[in-house]
Design a protein around this nucleic acid. Sequence first.
DNA 1: ACAAAAACATCATAAAAAATGATGATTGAC
DNA 2: GTCAATCATCATTTTTTATGATGTTTTTGT
Lengths: 302, 302
Amino acid sequence: MKNINPNQLLTFAVVARMKSVTRAAEYLHLGQPAVSGQLKLLQERVGEPLYHRRGHQIELTPVGSALLEYAEKLEHAMHQACDYVHRLQELDTGILRIGSTITITSYFLPEYLVMCQTRFPGIQIYMNTGNSQEIIDRLPELDLGFIEGVVKEEKLPDDYDLIPWRDDEIVLVVRKDHELVEKYPEGVPLSVFKEYQVIWREPESGARQLIEETLVEAGINAPINIEVMGVAGVMGSVRAGLGIGFASLQALNHASPDLVPLRIKPPEGLVWHLNLIAPREGLRSRAVQAFMQICNGTQEQS
Amino acid sequence: MKNINPNQLLTFAVVARMKSVTRAAEYLHLGQPAVSGQLKLLQERVGEPLYHRRGHQIELTPVGSALLEYAEKLEHAMHQACDYVHRLQELDTGILRIGSTITITSYFLPEYLVMCQTRFPGIQIYMNTGNSQEIIDRLPELDLGFIEGVVKEEKLPDDYDLIPWRDDEIVLVVRKDHELVEKYPEGVPLSVFKEYQVIWREPESGARQLIEETLVEAGINAPINIEVMGVAGVMGSVRAGLGIGFASLQALNHASPDLVPLRIKPPEGLVWHLNLIAPREGLRSRAVQAFMQICNGTQEQS
DNA sequence: ACAAAAACATCATAAAAAATGATGATTGAC
DNA sequence: GTCAATCATCATTTTTTATGATGTTTTTGT
């Protein structure tokens, strides 16, 4: 003999509440014989009658009403689950674990995070900051990663894609009164890194790595005397007159006006690419899809 | 698009717990593709992935583990319901609402009630005492009725049957020192009801109705001067010397030895029939079936 | 590093379950 | 007593679910 089927209990709960097979059937968008059949099966499996006809209505036996309590618990649990799924589909809930580098976290992401929170208040966002390698290592626990520069595809878990996001420019950061401002108003040559005291970022910094690669390509060997952690540290040192620094152009937008950006290696400048690491298409949660759309500026409306 | 199916959630719960599709399939006595298919459907309906393969194991996404909580609630509710049904089938639970007349309640049923409680401690018994008519009227709320004498079949709700249970004898009750004891040691004629002061039961009493019918048949017109409620009342009055009474022979078994029974209308005596009113075969709860078997003395062992 | 084994996905097909529509029986109302 | 409403039952069709075979990926053992 077969076991009890949850659907039969759910059907039974509706019938018991409505006290009518016909109305329960309507409620469930089914025909009346379908409901009758389910009830019959349920009673066979329970082994005794759960109700009997009392005129045009239906009356539960004691066993029936005892079973009803369990059926209603089941109904409640089922309702909760459906409700959760529904909220998920409406993006009224969800989790987004983002990993990103210091620079992106500080100067690029905030506006998108705000947009996401505003548009989908139900989505919980967890931020996780680290250098590119750390982010790649933590990918399995992340929904979305943001890094500067390219990563060899084979270094990514292969159900993740590297997707170009935005382009940005690395610029030299100098004090407004620095001689370079007058000397190279259109942009400085790479040689300045050899000729001036440079405030370097930490070795893992994407910006520093780009500069170093570029210098190697140009055959310039620049000494590294001063090294500070983070964009803010560089800016502080530059502002204090310790030397010249470099940073993402975006970072300069919100800096104090006594620092000015100078294009490096004119006329095209030192462009770098910010990339997004996301699960392959089809493996993305709705929250991820939503955030990616926000990042691409192509928001749809609900 | 279809809605979520409880079975899919239950399957998902097992897979998540086992962290393996294959082992979950074994646990559920299904093939592995069946489980894979259910999971696939569930994910389609939820709209995003719930897990991903991580080597040979399975790892839930955040949405997956959130949904798992609901799935486990569902599983728990389902388990409770199945458990209830199972206990029901083992008669470890159940309800028995019995209606019976005063006489049967007091002198016939107790031993069976004790047997039932001993054998099936989980069954709850509710007793309900009233005269035959009251019991018949309350049948819809009862599981089992016990009455004396016959009821016309058409007066019963037609999903109930009248089933002969035991035979009993109505006897005259007199004091040990009463003259009738010596005069009619083998049994008294009906005429004693006319010639002696009789303590009558209330008019609804089955025993009284049987006596009255018998007297009418015999053309004897007996005066009714004293009327008391219940067997115990009759016995008390007889013991006090107020007159003679009548009662079920069974009632005399447990009475004090200063009262003696005398057969009425020898040699066959005044036999009456105790009947049981039960739902039609197939409409009986397991508890009812069990109690009926106890009443018939044909107990099976578990 | 390579082969074998284990775990899961996918597909076409078979089996089982559920829904339907038609019909009959019972009940309550007028 | 007739009519309308409600539920049960049945044969049939539709839908759902499970299966067996096969392919892919990951781990394990040598």
